[in-house]
Design a protein around this nucleic acid. Sequence first.
DNA 1: AAGCTAGCCAACCGCTCCTAT
DNA 2: AATAGGAGCGGTTGGCTAGCT
Length: 417
Amino acid sequence: MGRSPCCDKVGLKKGPWTPEEDQKLLAYIEEHGHGSWRALPAKAGLQRCGKSCRLRWTNYLRPDIKRGKFTLQEEQTIIQLHALLGNRWSAIATHLPKRTDNEIKNYWNTHLKKRLVKMGIDPVTHKPKNDALLSNDGQSKNAANLSHMAQWESARLEAEARLARQSKLRSNSFQNSLASQEFTAPSPSSPLSKPVVGPARCLNVLKAWNGVWTKPMNEGSVTSVSAGISVTGALGRDLESPTSTLGYFENAQHISSSGIGGSSNTVLYEFVGNSSGSSEGGIMNNEESEEDWKEFGNSSTGHLPQYNKDVINENSISFTSGLQDLTLPMDTIWTAESLRSNTEQISPANFVETFTDLLLSNSGDGDLSEGGGTESDNGGEGSGSGNASENCEDNKNYWNSIFNLVNNPSPSDSAMF
DNA sequence: AAGCTAGCCAACCGCTCCTAT
DNA sequence: AATAGGAGCGGTTGGCTAGCT
C-alpha cells in the first residue's frame, strides 16, 4: 500500500537550518510545546516537515543538550553500554543524559569504533578480532557466553522499554502540561542551560553490578542487587530521555526489600551520582583521552568469586542462583522470544545475580583479577597481532575493564548516572 | 595558492513500532 | 482484525572544514 509521506514535500525546505528558522521553532515550542510534530511547521510558520523540526529540536535546539567533547567517563559508558546493547543509540543516550542519540552515534562511528579496531577488538562483538583462532580451550566459549548474556540483557531491556512506553503513555498528558511550564528558551545569558528533564536513569544491570561488586561476594548478592536497583526506583520520577523511549524498571514487586538499608541506598546513590574531580570541565583532548585509554583496565578488583565449573557446561548455561534454576542451551542464539519465555522463570534480581556470577566466571582458569590488565598498553597496533594467549588476555581484560569501570568509576563531572 | 583528502557532524531517508479508528 | 497515521529509531549521506601535498 505504501506509506504516505510524513508531510507534503512540495515547497518544503531541506538542508541546514538558518538562525531565523531556529528562532521560529524555539519560539513556537516555548509558547505551545511541540504538540503534534506534523502540524507544528504550519503553525510555527516554517517551511519544513514535522520530522525535520523534531530532529532539529531533539538534536540541537533542546535546552538540555551538552555539547563539546565527550569525557573519558562518557566514552567508557558508551562502550560499556554498546557492549550490552549494540547499536541502540537511543537506549544508550538514556544513560548519557545531556547527549543525543545522534551525537553518540556519530561519536561512536568516528572515534570509538576506530579506537577499538586499533586495539584489535571487534567493535560489533567487543571481542578480539581473531577470537575465532582461539581453539576450544574454553576462552572463546566463555566469550560466547558473554555475548549470550549481552543478548539476554538486551532482550530484557526490550521488555523494559515496552513497559516503560506503556507507563509513559499513561502519564503523557500530565507531562505535556508540565512541559510548557518548565521550558526555558536559551538566551545569550543562559545558553541552553536549563534542562527540561532530570538526569537519566542508570542502566539497571550496571547498577546491579555496582550493587554486587561494592560488597564482598559472601554477602547476599540478591540483597546487594536489590539495593542497586532500588536506588533507581527511589529517585521516584520519570526521567525519560527526550530522545528515547527506554524506560524505568518499574516492577518493584520483583525487588526484594529485605536488606535494603537506607545507608546502602545513600552510598550507592552518591557513588553513581556524585562524581567530580579530574575531568572538571569535561574537556579532554584526544591524546589525553588515548593515554587514559591505555590505562583502561589496569585496576583490579577484589570480591571476585571462584569460578564455578558447573555454571557453564559444554552445551548449556545453568543458572543456579539459589532461588530458581534454569538451564539454557548454548548452541542456539537466544532470541528475544525464547528469552521472554525463559526469563519468566527468573526474577530480575535473580537474573542479575546469575548474570553477574557468569560474567565474573568468565575466565576458565579462574581469576579475572589477576588479569591486572595491560590490555590496551600496546594500544595502537598491538593486540591485534598477538598470539592466542595474548588475545585471551585481551578478551579477559577487556571485559574485566568494563566491570572495573562500573565498579570503580574514575572521578569526573560526567553527567552520567 | 590551489587542489586533494579525510574527518566530522547535521540532517535526511526509510523503516518499525504503536495507537487510534 | 485490518488499516492508516504519527512518532521515533538507526543507517546513511552530503556539505563543511582542517590538514596535507
